[in-house]
């Protein structure tokens, strides 16, 4: 069982594992692995907490439903699974500023948190606009050969590669 305490596995071992996981989720739960809708549900649930039942009547929340479901639990599971893996290998650590960011822009926590927040707004907004994220479109949709998912996944990387180069070469 030594492999469980290793810090890193080959990306191919990980990819094959995720591929097999996708078979099982289709077989057992009849659902593809996906994540981003759960963030929209959470956002709606928090808004409902403050503004009441009228939030649930927004057309988008009627469409996705504001209840904890299979996919919401999957996202909770990701946090737990990553934590277990990191603890087993001693790779867990609290960190405010990633080292690649710190090397380019310094270790100011507030700057990194603000930029992460802005990036998060784009991610949340863009995932809903495209109807999925790197898991739902990028893995589960592409492996089913869905046209919407291949277009989305290619655009995720075009947008990401251009933006990352602009951030790290032009600004820096």
């Amino acid at each position: 069982m030594e492999f469980l305490t290793e810090v890193r596995w080959s990306p191919y071992a990980v990819g094959i594992g995720i591929g097999i996981l996708s078979w099982l989720s289709f077989l057992i739960s009849r659902k593809p692995i996906a994540c981003s809708t759960s963030f929209a549900k959470t956002s709606g649930m928090i808004e409902k907490l403050f503004l009441g039942g009228k939030v649930a009547r927004k057309p988008y929340y009627q469409k996705i439903g504001l209840a904890v479901d299979w996919q919401w639990m999957l996202v909770v599971g990701i946090i737990a699974g990553s934590l277990i893996s990191a603890l087993l290998s001693g790779d867990f650590r609290w960190q405010w500023v990633p080292s690649l960011w710190a090397a380019a822009f310094g270790d100011n926590v507030l700057l990194r948190v603000i930029v992460a927040l802005v990036g998060g707004v784009f991610i949340g907004f863009g995932a809903r606009w495209a109807g999925g994220c790197t898991s739902g479109h990028g893995i589960s949709g592409t492996l089913q050969l869905a046209v919407s998912s291949w277009i989305s996944a290619i655009c995720f990387f075009i947008g990401g590669i251009v933006a990352a180069h602009m951030i790290f070469t032009l600004i820096n």
């Binding site: 784009f122 863009g126 995932a127 606009w129 989305s152 075009i158 933006a163």
Partner: peptide, 21 residues
């Protein structure tokens, strides 16, 4: 949906450095 949403997501992907999963 997929081209514009995908590009918006991509920008966020680079700025945040993580995706929803």
């Amino acid at each position: 949906m997929n081209i514009i949403g995908g590009l918006i997501f991509g920008v966020g992907f680079a700025v945040l450095g993580y995706c929803p999963g």
